[in-house]
C-alpha cells in the first residue's frame, strides 16, 4: 500500500463511496430546492434544508479546469507524475476535484467532455475522469509493474577492459536511460530490518509512522536502497570484455538525499565519472543514482568503484 492519503468515510458520505465501489455515481439532491449537492453534506448549501436524497447520476460532465503538476504535490504521488489535477463540472452543475487519466497532455482541453473512470486500485474506489471517446472506464488491481519499463534490452557494445581510449570516451555528464522499476514493499523493508537488525520504527511500524513520521508513513532504510541496486538493470549500452575477474572496490561517496516511502517504486540510472589505469587493472568510477519513480531528487547517490582485473 502506498502512503497516499485515503478518504476517511463518514456516516454522511458513506453512500457516495459505496456507490463508487459499485461503479455508480450517486449525488445528493435537495428535496426542498431540487439543486444538486457535492461534496456530501448534512444540509443543502443552497437552502440549508436537511432533506437530501441520494440519486444516481451519469457522471458525464466537462472539464472546468486542470493543471499538470511538474513537481509531485506530495512525494507519495510521484508514481502519477506528472499529475493531471482537474476540476470537473458534472451535468448536474456540481464541481469536483479529481485527476485525469488515460489522456495525453495534448489531448486535454478545458471545456472538453469527460466521463468517469472507477479506480479500484486502493482501499477506496476513487473517481477519476477521461475523455468521452475513450474506452477506459474501470481500473482494477495493481498495474503490472514488471511490464512498465523493462523493454530496454538492446544489443550492447563490447569494449575490451584495456581499451582506455574507448573507455575514456564513455565519461559523460549524461545519464544512461532508466533501469527497470522495483517496488519497495513493506515486506522487503521488514525482511531487511530482520537481516540487518535495524528495526527502528520509522522503517517497520506503519501505525506509529503514520502518526509520527514526517513522511506520513514508513520509509525504506537507506542501506536497503543501496543493496537493491542489484535488482536494477541499468541499460548502459556497453559491456567490458577480456578481464578475468571483477570486484566492487567500494564507494567514494554514498548519500541518501531523499526518502523512499514504503510502497514506492524505484528505478536507477548511471553515468561514468572516471576511468583509471591502476596497478591491479582498470578502475571504473560509476555514479549510480536511484530515484523514486517521478521524483527529480535522487533517493540514493553512490559513486561506485569497480575494479576489472586480468
Amino acid at each position: 500500500m502506498s502512503n497516499k492519503p485515503q478518504p476517511a468515510i463518514t456516516d454522511i458520505s458513506r453512500p457516495y463511496w459505496d456507490a463508487l465501489k459499485q461503479h455508480q455515481i450517486k449525488l445528493q439532491q435537495c428535496n426542498a430546492c431540487a439543486l444538486w449537492v457535492f461534496f456530501p453534506r448534512s444540509h443543502c448549501p443552497h437552502c440549508l434544508s436537511d432533506a437530501l436524497q441520494w440519486r444516481e447520476v451519469s457522471g458525464q460532465g466537462k472539464l472546468l479546469t486542470y493543471t499538470v503538476a511538474r513537481i509531485p504535490t506530495l512525494p507519495d504521488f510521484a508514481d502519477e507524475a506528472p499529475q493531471k489535477l482537474a476540476v470537473v463540472e458534472l451535468a448536474e452543475g456540481v464541481h469536483l476535484n479529481t485527476t485525469l487519466i488515460g489522456l495525453d497532455e495534448d489531448e486535454i482541453c478545458i471545456g472538453m467532455a469527460v466521463k468517469p473512470v472507477f479506480d479500484a486500485r486502493g482501499e477506496t474506489t476513487l473517481l477519476r475522469f477521461t475523455g468521452i471517446d475513450k474506452t477506459l472506464s474501470v481500473i482494477e488491481g495493481q498495474t503490472d509493474e514488471a511490464a512498465a519499463e523493462t523493454g530496454q534490452m538492446q544489443a550492447k557494445r563490447q569494449i575490451h577492459f584495456k581499451d582506455f581510449a574507448s573507455l575514456k570516451a564513455l565519461i559523460s555528464d549524461e545519464f544512461s536511460p532508466w533501469s527497470n522499476r522495483y517496488s519497495v514493499t513493506q515486506d522487503i523493508i521488514n525482511q531487511f530490518a530482520a537481516l540487518s537488525g535495524d528495526d527502528y520504527w520509522i522503517h517497520t511500524d506503519p501505525e506509529r509512522a503514520k502518526k509520527h513520521s514526517p513522511f506520513g508513513g514508513t520509509i525504506a532504510h537507506g542501506m536497503l536502497i543501496q543493496v537493491l541496486l542489484s535488482r536494477l538493470t541499468i541499460p548502459l549500452g556497453w559491456e567490458l570484455t577480456g578481464f578475468g575477474n571483477m570486484a566492487n572496490y567500494g564507494s567514494n561517496k554514498l548519500r541518501f538525499p531523499s526518502p523512499v516511502p514504503a510502497g514506492s517504486q524505484i528505478h536507477g540510472r548511471a553515468r561514468i565519472k572516471a576511468v583509471d589505469e591502476v596497478k591491479a587493472g582498470t578502475q571504473l568510477t560509476l555514479e549510480m543514482c536511484v530515484h523514486v519513480v517521478g521524483q527529480e531528487r535522487p533517493a540514493l547517490i553512490n559513486e561506485l568503484i569497480v575494479l576489472y582485473m586480468p
Binding site: K4, P72, L96, N97
Partner: peptide, 20 residues
C-alpha cells in the same frame, strides 16, 4: 476526504488551475 486522496493539496495547484 475529497481533495487529498486525489493529490489536490496546498496552494500551487489551486492557483495554477485558476490561471489555466
Amino acid at each position: 476526504e475529497f481533495d487529498l486522496p486525489y493529490g489536490h493539496m496546498a496552494q500551487n495547484t489551486g492557483y495554477a488551475m485558476i490561471a489555466q
